[in-house]
Design a protein around this nucleic acid. Structure first.
Length: 899
RNA sequence: GGGCGGUUAGCUCAGUUGGUUAGAGCAUUGCGUUGACAUCGCAAAGGCCGUAGGUUCGAGUCCUAUACCGCCCACCA
């Protein structure tokens, strides 16, 4: 059987086929499954819970990033032989999904209120069934080796039970309470949102100055400034600084609310900044967080002036019914007429906007459910402080502390329809609340059946916080929960450290008594190639699906993985993806060549193998690489590991060893066999190392390699034989050093330098490429190594092998030839037409001067205190360099004299 | 206001226990194609490692200050 592999790697015909095969073969499922016979509880598993994607979402680069990163970790641990579980799933994403469905309904001219709650929820489920599979299909395309048999959805029956359990437990502990508080209200969505869901944007507005007339004297007023004049309608005090001479006389008196004529007190508080505005502050406790605090302190009345859609309510008297911005205009105009306006000036202010809808959020007094977060936060702080959870990169630890140390109670109720309904029932009979795990039929206090459930649903993140254990069966002690929990690594973008990660840690500790994972790995955000945030309006969005269509999944994955460092944003450009598509193709073609040679290689010889210098070199380099990759993976430096593998594969294996192997194969016999064997072994190991980065091309090629090798003989099999698939193949292990490695690498490096120097000179002298030229190489005590490699030398430097002279010393230097010195090795090349003696002299002179300056630098260095103070080994290294430069310099001098 | 990150080749970025000639990809320049690969090869050019101090025998790497860019948290009406 002979392989006729296509000339270029064809990812289109590969990816889907391999994914299907992997999945159907059960490779994505843990090798040690607690639900299957032969389960060994002593084996430690490696587990990642996927960050659940929005069920109606579309794949973007953020998904591509976390899938690539997590799949890398999962595949690595799987290949290391660990029982590995990557649990996938989706999030119902309350607000986002409801918005999408409402938008779709709006196209049909339907409003959600017309449908009613039940029908709306039914339609949303329909929507979920229809579109919910899209995102998971797209995640599959990225090669995600998730165990789809364990896929979960946050509104699943099981997860809903976990949510109930969590809510009731917190309630019973007194950590969930219902309260009337100032919260952020999103008028368009008609729901409360948490502090985290509000974003502040700097926008230009006005600072409005006006008069607060004294109630007891129509000629006196306090000047006040505000950015939101409409809130005047809800003012219940004016505050001045107690030591402000300007306003001292007003303290304790009453002022009149403009247009409404309500009398409100003037109070003193040192919260007021005398420098800002007029130094007098109006207080609207019902519509401003700071005013709320002051209001609480002084027991001020709270007057809400807005309804749920941010229209002025009855408290706004004649302004009732007006939209908040309309009211602002109207009221200001009326105040102007009434002579209460002083001035308005342009002002740059921070406007709170809803993260989802983008509309301006209003602080409002409202009845909501809260989690008393302090006890949970304290526990979550402790585990990170104690080092039980490691945050990578480390600097986010501080961010995490800072947030938890200043955390406010979490508003968990949302006035939406799509989500987990709050498990609280109110009794119309006795007025008490029933909070239970199972839907009750009667009030738990008076037994009345006249009960109704709370209308609100829970914040989406309430269920997300339970994700690492709710997905494993909690609150049941299922086999999965017992074996896979706590999970290992939580990998996600740093932008949801607070939203999600912190809450999982709090919830994990609270509900399971354990940390939910021991490591948090945070990746950065993906930006465009100039570091700008991708957005539809800017038109700089890169669609990962398009990129995969064009260049293949491996290219995209490798780019994301290698182009990033933990916690830092990554600028992605298609140029980079293209370069990595080329890399995939490079892998393919190197493999294609090796497979072809493997088929032609002679039979395995008897006796001890004989390795050439290049064989030894590439093998030693491979061992170093394997050790380095393991070290880097251990330190979560996946990008650097990928770069090193890339560099090894392309820069050393393909560029050098493969070229040399062609020579060695041409020699035939044992040499050809051992060369083929080396090629196969290094390729096999490289494919294993690369597999977590570029799973498709490596699996495909490895399959071909395996079949071709099996068709030949077992001599080409890796130690331990060929596994069923690369995805479950053993991770390479570095061989212990045997002592020869350093010398062989140094020897080979010298040959490489010699070849480069000759190539360089040829290019400079414009020798016809490929034209064989004679050469004399004087290599002194290193003669043996050069003799052994003469064919390699001749071939790679395009020398005429029959006229190549290798000699330990030369009594008389050749005349009129181009000459080189490399680490003390002299090279003479009788280049035809080399008449330009002056040019040659100039070149050698320049070379000599450069060498001389290196000598001077090193001499100065060694005679400085470096010579005495630096470690002996470091000094010795520099001494050797100096000796080499001196040798080179003296030989260059001879050559100059010879010209 | 508090905190964090970045500043290295024309562009985009690596460079993790400080070791003395700073790397890659892309772009540029020159040469090259019947035999793994033009999604390629060979070579060239390109860098006071933001600035100023300090520690050290030695600093892109550690410390301090500073400038510019970006981000997060807080949210002075």
């Amino acid at each position: 059987m002979s392989y006729d592999l296509p000339k270029a790697y064809d990812f289109k015909s590969t990816e889907q086929r391999l994914y299907k095969w992997w999945e159907e073969s059960g490779f994505f499922q843990p090798s040690n499954d607690p639900n299957k016979p032969g389960f060994d509880p002593a084996k430690k598993p490696f587990v990642i819970s996927i960050p659940p994607a929005n069920v109606t979402g579309e794949l973007h680069l953020g998904h591509a990033m976390f899938v690539a990163m997590e799949d890398l970790m999962i595949r690595y641990h799987r290949m290391k032989g660990e029982s590995t579980l990557w649990l996938p799933g989706t999030d119902h994403a309350g607000i986002a999904t409801q918005l999408q469905v409402e938008k779709a309904l709006a196209k049909e001219g339907i409003k959600r209120d017309q449908l009613g709650r039940e029908e709306f929820v039914r339609r949303t489920w329909e929507w979920k069934e229809k579109y919910g599979g899209i995102i998971t299909g797209q995640i599959r395309r990225l090669g995600a080796s998730c165990d789809w048999t364990r896929e979960r959805f946050t509104l699943d029956e099981g997860l809903s039970r976990a949510v109930r359990e969590a809510f009731v437990r917190l309630y019973e502990k007194g950590l969930i309470y219902r309260g009337t508080r100032l919260i952020n209200w999103s008028p368009g969505l008609r729901t409360a949102v948490s502090d985290l869901e509000v974003e502040y944007t700097q926008e230009s507005g006005f600072l409005y100055y006006f008069k607060y007339m004294l109630a007891d004297n129509p000629d006196e007023f306090i000047p006040v400034a505000t950015t939101r004049p409409e809130t005047i309608l809800g003012d219940t005090a004016v505050t001045v600084h107690p030591e402000d001479e300007r306003y001292r006389r007003f303290i304790g008196r009453k002022v009149l609310v403009p247009m409404l004529g309500r009398e409100i007190p003037v109070i003193a508080d040192d919260y007021v900044d005398r420098e800002f505005g007029t130094g007098a502050l109006k207080i609207t406790p019902a519509h401003d967080p700071n005013d709320y605090q002051i209001g609480q302190r002084y027991g001020l009345e709270m007057i809400s002036i807005l309804d749920k859609e941010a229209r002025i309510n009855a408290n706004g008297s004649s302004y009732a019914g007006l939209d908040r911005f309309e009211a602002r205009k109207q009221l200001w105009a009326d105040m102007k007429t009434a002579g209460l306006v002083i001035k308005e000036e342009p002002y740059l202010m921070n406007v709170p906007r809803s993260q989802r809808g983008g509309e301006i959020v209003e602080p409002m007094i409202s009845d909501q459910w809260f989690v008393a977060i302090q006890p949970l936060a304290d526990a979550a702080l402790k585990v990170v402080r104690d080092g039980d959870i490691d945050i990578v990169p480390d600097r986010f630890t501080k961010v995490y502390y800072n947030w938890l140390e200043n955390i406010q109670d979490w508003c968990i109720s949302r006035q939406l329809w799509w989500g987990h309904r709050i498990p609280v029932w109110y009794c119309d009979e006795c007025g008490k609340m029933t909070v239970v795990r199972e839907d009750p039929s009667a009030c738990s206090h008076c037994g009345s059946s006249r009960i109704r459930q709370d209308e609100d649903v829970l914040d989406t993140w309430f269920s997300s916080g339970l994700w690492p254990f709710s997905t494993l069966g909690w609150p049941e002690e299922t086999p999965d929960y017992k074996y896979f929990y706590p999970t290992s690594v939580l990998e996600t973008g740093y932008d949801i450290l607070f939203f999600w990660v912190a809450r999982m840690i709090m919830d994990g500790l609270e509900f399971t008594g354990q940390i939910p994972f021991h490591t948090v790995y945070l990746h950065g955000l993906i930006r465009d190639e100039h570091g700008h945030k991708m957005s539809k309006t800017k038109g700089n969005v890169i669609d990962p699906l398009g990129v995969m269509d064009e260049m293949g999944t491996d290219a995209l994955r490798f780019t994301l993985l290698v182009g990033s460092t933990p916690g830092n944003d990554t600028n992605l450009s298609l140029k980079k993806v293209e370069a990595n598509r080329n890399f995939a193709n490079k892998i393919w073609n190197a493999g294609r060549f090796i497979i072809g040679e493997l088929e032609k290689a002679p039979a395995a010889p008897q006796g001890e193998p004989e390795w050439t210098l290049p064989d030894s070199w590439i093998w030693a380099r491979l061992q170093t690489l394997i050790a380095d990759v393991d070290r880097l993976f251990g330190g979560h430096q996946y990008g650097e590991a990928g770069r090193q593998i890339y560099e090894f594969f392309w820069g050393e294996f393909a560029d050098w060893y493969l070229e040399i192997a062609k020579q060695q194969l041409a020699e035939g016999g044992d040499r050809a066999f051992y060369t083929a064997q080396t090629l196969v072994r290094v390729l096999d190991a490289s494919l294993r190392l690369l597999h977590p980065f570029t799973p498709y091309v490596t699996e495909e090629l490895w399959g071909h390699l395996k079949r071709a090798a099996q068709a030949r003989s077992d001599q080409f099999a890796p130690k331990g034989g060929w596994e069923e698939a690369l995805i479950i193949a053993r991770w390479p292990q570095a061989q212990a050093a045997e002592g020869w490695e350093e010398d062989k690498v140094a020897e080979f490096t010298l040959i490489q330098e010699t070849i480069r120097a000759i190539r360089n000179l040829r290019a400079e002298k414009k020798v016809t490429p490929g034209k064989r030229i004679p050469a004399t190489i004087v290599c002194g005590d290193r003669l043996a190594a050069f003799q052994a490699q003469s064919r390699t030398l001749a071939s790679l430097a395009a020398l005429d092998a029959s006229q190549l002279v290798l000699i330990a010393s030369l009594p008389e230097k050749p005349q009129g030839q181009a000459s080189l010195v490399v680490s003390g090795i002299e090279i003479y090349l009788p280049l035809a037409g080399l008449v330009d003696v002056e040019g040659e002299r100039a070149r050698l002179q320049k070379e000599f001067e450069e060498t001389q300056s290196q000598i001077e630098r090193l001499e100065t260095l060694l005679s400085s205190s470096f010579g005495q103070r630096a470690p002996a080994a470091v000094v010795e290294k520099e001494r050797q360099k100096l000796a080499a430069f001196q040798e080179t310099a003296s030989k260059l001098k001879e050559q100059l004299a010879n010209l």
